[in-house]
Write a protein that binds this DNA or RNA. Structure first.
Length: 613
DNA sequence: GAATCTGTTGGATAC
DNA sequence: CGTATCCAACAGATT
């Protein structure tokens, strides 16, 4: 075919280095070549995207656009402010397009969207070329090699991945980029429905990004946060391929760090510098290629003279987990992001469960407030006012920086779900979705299911203490004092349990430990919202019961509500009232707020039930 | 099919 | 201060 006129559609691959799809597009020898990003109302309104993640995305787009212009000063990244489903059919005509090329995306919504675009291309006689590149292995292929089952353990990935083949070496960036064709557009843009807008609370003003398809200055420029209606970003982490490659260089230069990295041994309390690579947001936006990361690390490991670490704890092991979650999502689709209708997620009668539209089988974005107490705990967790400084510091760091260490995520996730509040993991996942700059649905949903012991992981008796766990990493409480400054003057021995500080110490530290944390008051830090050990025991009993009942999210009983009949005992309650919660509370003796001691009765009963089975 | 081992990242206690 | 052991006990992989 002569004179190809090609649109390259950038999506989750905001880079020039190692892009198999971009290479395929340029290999067509296009006569005219438009590097395009299309705004997606799903992302703008129907996904929770906080201002820090927007900033990171805009950074990536600006950097990429500059890099394209460096290769061809007539070209840039053309930002089209219309939904791809309605835009492309018009673009195909207007620009007489012959080829559309993009990187494969196995997110549930992306699959639906791309099907619509592919069909439109077919009708317009446009050839579509799709290349896999977001993960180490194509997620659909990974599932196939895993006997057509979702990848639910790392060993499955380690077995299935190599069956596909070796991870390819990165492709060098292009040396030149063809001219773009005419960019004149003579059609009216279609503006999407703006309601509901899940991000309305973080907008200072309404979103203006759909007012004109080519942007306010008619130049297809990358929008500003202002155009999107958002306030300034608060995070110090910035996006873009240039930065990502510099960060990778710095990591690789430290051979010992690169070759001996073991995730479980990295400190979640380190913040200057951080203990891990901070490359996850770059992998999400594609400002760094996963194969670039993999091979740069692997080459160091292969040449390392000392004792190198191994997957899954090593640096490359982290990438395997990402492929595992992508494989699970590719197989399970939308249901992977929720409990109900999810065949691989255990049903636990958490508080604040999601509302579900049974016609579409999808969560609606709202949830049932089955317990005012749980709702209060959820709000205090979200805004870092639980009265547990370790939890509060992490949640405040998350909100401010858009990033917390993986083990920090474990701590707050365990606390919200199976090890404290007994609140649905979906509530926590939504907060992470909004605030994390490295949020991607597969990894976020997967990690929340892991931590809540509803999939991937099941040892619910291993519970993170908000007091003991941080002590292992930061005895002085330096991390807490950074993000919870009202505790700055407090003696280290009380830093994780400030409610134990005598009045004299509180005075000396110029902080009062009082109140319920519903609002933030000057010089005041709240009392803990519950006795942790007491809650821990209640939750573990609840988990034991729920495991014994053994429902999964796609069980008719889980869907139609008849599960309640199976939960009428003394475990942490069904979502409509804790029928016999007092029985359990009586069995937990609280010794002057110091620690809870489980009495014999509880243990013996638990055992007799399991033996009876 | 049963028994045993292993699983990226727990906590408390003893030495 | 590091390491071993128990706690009470899940599920997937391996034998």
């Amino acid at each position: 075919m002569g004179n190809p006129r090609v649109i390259y559609w950038f999506r989750t691959d905001l880079r020039l280095h190692d892009s198999p799809a971009l290479k395929a597009a340029l290999d067509l020898n296009p006569e005219e070549f438009w590097p395009v990003w299309t705004w997606d109302p799903r992302y703008v309104y129907r996904a929770r995207v906080g201002t820090n993640r927007w900033q990171f995305l805009l950074d990536c787009q600006n950097d990429l656009s500059k890099s394209i212009t460096k290769l061809n000063k007539k070209s840039k990244l053309f930002l089209m402010r219309e939904a791809p489903q309605t835009l492309f059919p018009k673009l195909f005509k207007a620009w007489k397009i012959t080829h559309l090329v993009f990187e494969k995306d196995t997110d549930a919504y992306a699959k639906d969207r791309d099907e619509v675009v592919k069909k439109a291309a077919e009708e317009a006689g446009v050839e579509v070329i799709i290349k896999s590149g977001r993960t180490l292995w194509d997620s659909d292929e990974l599932v196939k090699k895993n006997h057509n089952k979702p990848t639910m353990s790392i060993s499955q990935v380690q077995a299935a991945g190599p069956k596909i083949g070796k991870i390819s070496r990165p492709i060098p960036p292009p040396k030149s980029i063809p001219d773009p064709g005419d960019t004149k557009l003579d059609f009216e843009p279609q503006r999407p429905e703006q309601n509901p807008d899940l991000n309305s609370s973080s907008r200072l003003q309404g979103d203006k990004s759909y007012e004109r398809i080519s942007g306010p200055n008619d130049d297809f420029a990358v929008p500003t946060l202002e155009e999107l209606g958002f306030a300034r970003a608060t995070s110090s982490h910035r996006g873009g391929e240039t930065i990502a490659l510099q960060m990778l260089d710095r990591i690789i230069a430290d051979e010992q760090y690169t070759a001996t990295f073991e995730k479980p041994n990295t400190a979640p309390t380190a913040f200057e510098p951080q203990a891990t690579t901070l490359l996850s947001p770059h992998l999400h936006f594609g400002s760094l290629s996963i194969r670039e990361f993999y091979w740069r690390v692997q080459d160091v490991v292969d040449n390392y003279s000392g004792k190198a670490s191994h997957p899954p704890a090593s640096l490359t092991g982290q990438l395997l987990f990402r492929d595992m979650y992508f494989g699970a999502q590719a197989a399970l689709g939308y249901s992977f992001g929720q409990t109900l209708y999810n065949s691989h997620c255990r049903f636990i009668p958490w508080h604040l469960p999601s509302k579900v539209d049974h016609k579409t089988k999808l969560v609606t974005g709202e949830y049932h407030v089955d317990s005012p107490q749980a709702e209060e705990w959820f709000q205090r967790w979200k805004y870092g006012r639980t009265g547990f400084p370790w939890i509060d510091a992490l949640m405040r760091q998350l909100r401010q920086e858009g990033w917390i260490h993986h083990l920090g995520r474990h701590a707050v996730a365990c606390f919200l779900t199976r090890g404290g509040c007994y609140i649905s993991w979906e509530r926590g996942a939504e907060v992470f979705e909004e605030w994390l700059i490295d949020h991607e649905t597969a990894c976020n949903a997967g990690n929340w299911q892991w931590l809540s012991c509803t999939a991937f992981f099941a040892q619910f008796f291993r519970c993170y203490s908000p007091i003991a766990f941080p002590k292992k990493w930061d005895k002085e409480g330096i991390f807490v004092k950074r993000y919870v400054p009202e505790l700055k003057g407090l003696d280290a021995k009380y830093i994780y349990e400030p409610w134990k500080a005598p009045m004299a110490d509180q005075k000396k530290a110029k902080v009062r430990i009082q109140g319920d944390g519903k609002e933030q008051l000057e010089g005041v830090y709240p009392k803990p919202m519950f006795d942790f050990n007491e809650r821990r025991n209640i939750c573990i009993e609840g988990m034991k019961k729920a495991y014994k009942v053994g429902l999964y999210g796609d069980d008719p009983k889980a869907i139609d509500g008849t599960w309640r009949k199976l939960f009428d005992d003394d475990a942490e309650g069904p979502t409509e009232g804790n029928t016999n919660i007092m029985v359990l509370l009586k069995r937990t003796r609280v010794v002057r707020g110091k620690k809870a001691v489980k009495l014999k009765g509880a243990t013996e009963k638990g055992r007799s039930v399991s033996e009876a089975k």
